[in-house]
Each structure stands twice: as C-alpha cells, then as structure tokens.
Design a protein around this nucleic acid. Structure first.
Lengths: 227, 227
DNA sequence: TCTAGCCTTTCATACAGCATGATAGTATGA
DNA sequence: TCATACTATCATGCTGTATGAAAGGCTAGA
C-alpha cells in the first residue's frame, strides 16, 4: 500500500489554487476569486483557505490586500526570505559587499557568455539613462537607471537562482545604505567603469568585464569605508 | 502622529513568538507552549495564532506536528524556498552549481586569509573522518564528515551573511541531489582535491586553494551531467 | 508475565458564524 | 459643483465546537 495522505489540507488547497492559476493563465496583477467563492469551489472552510492563501503569500506567489482582494504577484521558481539582524551597519555592508562581489562577479561572467543582442542593447539604453540623469543631477533617476542596468545583466545570466539570490542581497544591502555620496563622486569614480563593463560585455571579453566590475565594487567599498 | 499599525496581527504575533524563542534561548527541537496557551499569553485568537505559526513554519523556523505540539526547527536568517516542483532537476542542479562556485569559491578565498589555527585543525579532523569513512565504505558517515569539513571552511570566513547564504543553497541543492555515485568514484575524483584544498589553506596559498576548489566543483559538475 | 485492546489526555486541525475594517463606487444634498 | 454619506465588496480577526492524531496508562485475557 502507498503512503496514505498525510499532507495538511491547507497545503493541498494551496496546490489546488496554484493549479487554478496555471490553468487560467493568470498573469501578474490578476485577481483571484474572493475567499467566499474559493471556499465553496474548493469545499473547505474559511480558515483553512486563509492558511492556504497565506502559504502562497509567504512564498511571494500572491498578495492579499485588505478590502480589495487577492492578486497574483509572482510566478518565480524561487523565493528567498531574509530576516537579517545587524548590530553594526558598516560591518554588515562590508560582509554584504564580499557576497555581492562573489555573486555579481559570477553574474557578469555568465552575462558575457550568455547575453543576447537585445539584452546588450537594453543595457546600453539603461546606461544612457544613467549618465543622462547624472548630468542633470537627478539622483533618484540615476539610481533607478543603475538598478535597471544591473538587473539586465543578471537577467542575461539565464540563471534564475543566481538572479533571485542577488536580488535579495541587493534588497538587504540597500536597506542599510543611505548612499552617502554626491552625484559628482559617482560620476568620477563609478560611472566610467560601468561604461567599460558594458564595452567588455559587448566584446565578450570576460577578463576585461571582471576587471571593470571589480573596480565598481572597489568604489563601493571605499564609500562604505568612509561612512 | 506615528504611522499607525498597519501590519497584520498575525505578522506581529510571529515576531512576538520569535522574540519569545530568543528570550528563552530555545534551541532546535525544543517545544513551544501549546496553541491554547500561546493564544492567551499573546492575547490573540486561535486562527490568527495559527497563521503566525504557519508563517514561521514556512520560513523553516518551526515545525508543527499534529497531536504533539510545536517545535523549534531552525533560526536561519536566509531561507530559499523552491515554490513549485522543479520541472527539470538537472537544470536546477547546474544553476545551483554555478551559484555554489561563486559563493563557496569566495568562501575558500576568505578562509585562506582568515582561518585560525584551531579551525584549520578542525578541518583536518573532519577530513580524516571523511577518508576513514570512505575506506570503510560508509556512505552516510562520509557525507556527514564532508559537510562538516565544508562547514568549517565557511565558518572560517568570518562572514555570517556569506555562511548563511551558502547554507541555504546547500539545503536546496541536496534536496534535489540523490548522489548517484558510488564511494569509489568519490575516492578517486573528489577526495584528493579536498586534501589539496586543505594543504593550500594551511599554506595560505589562495591560488592553489582556488584551483583545488574548482576541481572539486568540476567533479560535482560531471556527476550532475551524468544523471 | 506479557500484551492486545480500550480509555484518557494533550494537542493540532478544521469548520461555521459573527463582528470589524478597509476600499471604492455611487448617490445625496447644500 | 463638490464634499459628505451610503453601500457593496472583500479581507481580517475572534470564538465555540467537533474531529483527529499521538502517546501514555490501565485492564483483561492468554
């Protein structure tokens, strides 16, 4: 005899809901039926259903908003939860920097190999936006463009796990980094290497890319040191 | 006025429970008070409490067993969830391998610099256990010793964030890897490089260490390819 | 003396009903 | 015209009740 059912009802319901989403090809932002309805169609009680929904929410697959409804958020294969407690900001940032070096260095390496032409073009676009914003002294825009630039690189690795981990390390990194530097500094110390990096990716030159990336990280390091 | 409470009650409760665990220095395997009791001490309803517990469970911090109680499982700051079934095991393992190369490569690099004498000795001990187990054809013991060996290296980096990320990547890696190879293969292809790696750490030779580590990863790669 | 069967205790699991609160759209009235 | 009040829709949260799983203890029959 096979192992009998032992799984919790809420987990079964979660799978059911996921199957439902897949079946109806629900995309990000789409709305799920209200709880009362799901309750009936799945034939389970409300608290059980809520547990199932919460399970999916904690995995980042759903987002449930009070008074509005339940919405599809994400269908990524990985979800990373962090609960990092830090006592020393600077130490944490330095630790995180080492991790970023490893992870993003690998990403650059993979991007050199796997980036498609479209992706390279997209990087160029973001980099142009970046330099434009720096020239106009628009800090917010510059940061956004920079993030997009890096995102595109990580996308180009074609490695979902790597990308997910980098994303969450970024999140915790920037949570504790209130960018202590002025635009001019970035323009001088960091921007030129971005340009070199992109060039290297275009030329599929992994050594050049690695060197440029190390320079970027070095400028971040000195920013941290000067906190 | 400050931002009023917007957080969900269940999340607040989850934090409260976590604080409770920390406060009482609960270790892995310890038992939490039963729901009925927690319900009262936290002053919340049962369904809310259940949601809080489930939240912690989905993070891997707790394990709740029907008819027995709620138990502390783990207090890791970094947790990777693989949301659905991975459709292609091999692809996932290859992706994870790239991440491991980046992360653990960095760890080896840091360990060469920061490992204390005690840590180096500990590595040696674990490695001895490892080879012993291999000789006696004891698969289980060999794996445990191997894990301990690597753990000690990551410990020696003195980088908590790096260590916790590596830990969770390991967890998801081994969840999908049912080690398809025999002990003899390991003895030939993988073990010698472990010895070289340790030598390199002892000699504080980062290049040699990096090379040995790459060899180990290479042997893992070919194991994966042959699945 | 041993042990299978039954009870009890301790817990989690699940359901149903009810009250509250958030959000958004719509109607009302000065 | 525009703010205010009403209302529908949905999630949030609490409680009473009952079901079910695990473990330990008790008792009767071999």
């Amino acid at each position: 005899m096979k192992t009998m059912k032992k799984e919790r009802l809420s987990e079964m319901a979660a799978k059911e809901i996921k199957a439902y989403m897949k079946e109806r090809h629900l995309k990000e932002g789409d709305k799920l039926p209200p709880v009362s309805e799901l309750m009936e169609t799945l034939g389970i009680g409300r608290s059980t259903l809520r547990e199932a929904l919460q399970l999916l929410e904690s995995r980042g697959a759903l987002q449930v908003l009070n008074g509005k409804g339940t919405f599809v958020k994400d269908i990524k294969p990985f979800h990373i939860q962090t609960s990092i407690e830090i006592d020393n900001k600077k130490d944490f940032l330095l630790e995180a920097l080492e991790v970023r070096k490893a992870l993003e260095g690998k990403a650059v390496d993979l991007a050199v190999v796997h980036a498609s032409d479209t992706e390279v073009n997209r990087m160029q676009t973001h980099l142009n936006r970046y330099v434009e914003a720096l020239k106009n002294n628009e800090r917010e825009k510059a940061n956004a463009a920079d993030a997009d630039f890096h995102q595109t690189i990580y996308q180009a690795t074609k490695n979902e796990l790597l990308k997910s981990i980098i994303d969450s390390v970024w999140d915790s990194f920037y949570e504790f980094w209130n960018e202590p530097f002025g635009v001019e500094d970035i323009f001088d110390t960091s921007y030129p290497y971005h340009e070199t990096l992109l060039q290297a990716i275009k030329e599929r030159d992994s050594e050049k890319a690695a060197a440029a990336f190390q320079q970027i990280m070095e400028s971040v390091r000195s920013s941290i040191e000067n906190i």
